[in-house]
């Protein structure tokens, strides 16, 4: 009886072992397929192209000609001697410095307003979100039409007895206006992210603060903001990367003008590569952009980590 039971368990465990082995093989096969394909894919479409870009950046490469001599760092030195490239770096940072806080503030403001109302909340949320799903390019053309010299906005200004403005034709206004359209387009997304964050804050914190007689500002400053911090930092990181890559709006609204006041790094790369055919310089500019993004992201992640520990 006992012997029989023992034999049975032994067989059972052998069977188990067998299934476990085949299970293990199957498991690894699964892992290889599910992860190997993406890994190979990313190595070949992301990692290898970056190395390739580094390779191109040290060559003089005219798109139409076939020889591509090695020129060392010459592309980089011409690039930094180029006034327009330097300007494009400054402009790109302007987009980030105005755009990211702008987007966060507007998004947070709308989220807070919406958080305080209950009727029509769904309606407002939908409306504010619409710009986010529309094509940047199409929207840019609409803004261009509204902002042109004889456009709607100038006519309105005139009707109100105000001076018409140059808007996109002015080196002082164009960059700001493009940034505003970017904020306009991302408000809905930002608002949603913040609303989720706000809803996750336990109501009792506010109730406790209310008992203590805290003002609305103090509640915001000492409860809302600190608890929203992870969401804020996440949004800032994403925001910085996306504003660093400003291109479509600029290409469609000003094409970098007037006086290069809106030329961004990406637009400059595009022009170098596809208007002037200078692949080497364009790749060098790409490497610089990559370095900028890398440094900024690492910096921000550091800030993120510190905040989380705190």
């Amino acid at each position: 009886m006992l012997e029989h039971a023992l034999r049975l368990t032994a067989r059972k465990s052998r069977e188990l072992l067998h299934t476990r082995l085949s299970y293990r093989a199957q498991r690894y096969l699964f892992i290889y397929i599910a992860l190997g394909i993406p890994l190979l894919y990313f190595l070949s479409t992301r990692m290898a192209p970056i190395l390739y870009a580094f390779n191109v950046s040290v060559r003089e490469w005219d798109l139409l000609s076939s020889d591509k001599p090695y020129v060392g760092l010459a592309n980089f030195s011409t690039l930094f001697a180029d006034e327009i490239f330097r300007k494009s770096i400054v402009n790109t940072f302007k987009f980030v410095i105005i755009g990211v806080p702008g987007q966060l503030i507007v998004g947070l403001a709308v989220a807070l307003l919406l958080h305080n109302v209950y009727r029509f909340r769904g309606f407002f949320r939908t409306v504010y979100f619409i710009p986010y799903v529309t094509s940047i390019i199409a929207v840019s053309w609409v803004f261009r039409w509204i902002l042109m010299r004889n456009g709607w906005l100038n006519e309105m200004l005139l009707n109100l007895g105000l001076e018409p403005q140059l808007f996109l034709q002015s080196p002082r206004q164009a960059l700001l206006l493009i940034t505003l359209t970017m904020i306009w387009q991302s408000t809905g997304f930002q608002m949603l992210i913040f609303m989720t964050g706000l809803e996750a804050i336990p109501r009792m914190y506010y109730e406790a603060a209310a008992i203590d007689g805290a003002s609305a500002w103090r509640k915001f400053r000492h409860i809302t903001l600190p608890l929203l911090n992870p969401v804020l930092v996440f949004s800032a990181v994403i925001g910085v990367i996306s504003y660093l890559q400003s291109f479509g709006q600029v290409l469609s609204m000003t094409n970098g003008g007037p006086l290069n006041s809106t030329t961004t790094m990406v637009l400059h790369i595009y022009n170098l590569a596809f208007q002037q055919f200078k692949m080497g310089s364009a790749a060098a500019a790409t490497v610089v952009l990559f370095a900028v993004i890398l440094v900024l992201t690492l910096l921000q992640l550091k800030v993120l980590n510190r905040k989380v520990e705190y």
Partner: peptide
């Protein structure tokens, strides 16, 4: 799943998030 090298693979994949499309257009194009 837990297996050796998982973290490295995850890091490789995630790090590509920091590489913007614009950075890659020139090599992709070529």
């Amino acid at each position: 799943f837990s297996f050796y090298g998982k973290q490295v693979i995850f890091l490789i994949i995630i790090s590509t998030l920091m590489v913007p499309t614009e950075m890659l257009i020139i090599p992709w194009y070529l």
